[in-house]
Nucleic acid binder design. Structure first.
Lengths: 212, 212
DNA sequence: GTCTATAAGCCGATAGAC
DNA sequence: GTCTATCGGCTTATAGAC
């Protein structure tokens, strides 16, 4: 009758590839909230529900686990970024919609933690910062720049620079209000910033009479 | 003849208050480059040239030393920020001058390291993030907002929001290009961003004919 | 106040049973 | 492949001489 291999049904009901996923899920929780140096392999093992040696059988060392994790999360972010709502639409409507979608996406705890860790470790892991830069920042900037370039009626001087003004304003708003806890001490809202941004982009292409 | 107290001339030629300064200088080097968790009291003691116990006689613990250090550096930053070049001047000239001064100041290694650490530890030390927000971000934003408000010919919708657009664009530029190593993979320059920013602010108040 | 020496515990990484 | 047990080394913080 049964000789080996059927004890899998008791407490070990996961395949090796699920263990790896389990480790990455646990590592995500710990690394993204406590940073690289503030994370111990013991804690990752405990939260992931595996032993430490299991981690070392799937990943080379702490540095390797961290690198794989951040690469994966960064690539995942890229996937659902600006896919559906591509280039088309009237500026006033589309830019407002893109701005609000951007703000909402960036305000999630997960995204803020990712940005915080990448900034924190940009000195020790410059290749991760570069990956984030290429796959998220640069790509987003160029999609926006393409849109501005396709709309000459906006009379934009430098589409790529304008794309940075647009996205950078929203990023720094989240940095100041969410990450650096400015919400508590400032009444500046995302809505006011978006309104000002749209106003800046649109009014410059319209006939406008100064009142003096 | 000499009995005590003249061995000060040999290796200990510093008063207690100078020791404290010595510790803070060493702590600055280590904390700002390695982060909170990545810094050991041994290393601070070694670089400061004092023993570990000397640190613990001046500061309560590691957390206390870090807090005092960041508070001091933040306040110091505030001092030499926007003092001399206050409110006055013609927009095109003044805004360009402020923008370049801002970029140059933010691009220094020391300032980038401070911002990086404050962002990195904003979860564990929220009061330090709030301090930075109040003394640097909010203050700078309101100085700029006052200038915009004093120039109604610029026809600005929301001066405070406009101040954030202006400063936030420059902060996020340093974040992307310096901290996240975007300089290596992007040809976007500070000059192009500043030109676009000035163009946005000025052209909206001028009579402008769309070319179609 | 400042030093050397040390306590007590946690760290990353590994050895060996199964 | 996964577990338990363990090894050096480094960590924060303190004790005691001077």
């Amino acid at each position: 009758m049964g000789t080996t291999k059927l004890k899998r049904n008791l407490k070990d009901d996961s395949s090796p590839i699920e263990k790896r996923e389990q480790i990455l899920q646990g590592a995500m929780q710990v690394f993204l909230t406590h940073g690289y140096a503030g994370t111990s392999m013991d804690r990752v093992a405990a939260i992931a529900g595996v032993s430490k040696q299991t981690i070392y059988s799937h990943f080379q060392d702490k540095e390797g686990l961290f690198t794989v994790l951040i690469e994966r999360v960064t690539i995942d972010r890229l996937q659902g970024e600006l896919g559906a709502e591509m280039l088309c639409g009237e500026p006033e409507v589309l830019l407002r919609r893109v701005a609000y979608a951007f703000l909402e996406r960036m305000s999630s705890e997960d995204y803020l933690n990712l940005l915080r860790v990448i900034v924190a470790e940009s000195g020790r892991f410059p290749e991760l910062a570069e990956l984030y830069n290429r796959t998220v920042i640069q790509r987003g900037r160029q999609i926006l720049a393409s849109y501005f370039q396709a709309h000459p009626e906006l009379n934009i001087l430098d589409p790529e620079a304008m794309a940075h003004v647009f996205a950078g304003t929203l990023v720094s708003f989240c940095l100041a209000q969410e990450i650096l806890h400015g919400k508590l001490i400032s009444s500046l809202t995302g809505e006011r910033v978006v309104n000002e941004l749209i106003d800046l982009v649109l009014k410059r292409s319209a006939i406008q009479s100064p009142n003096h």
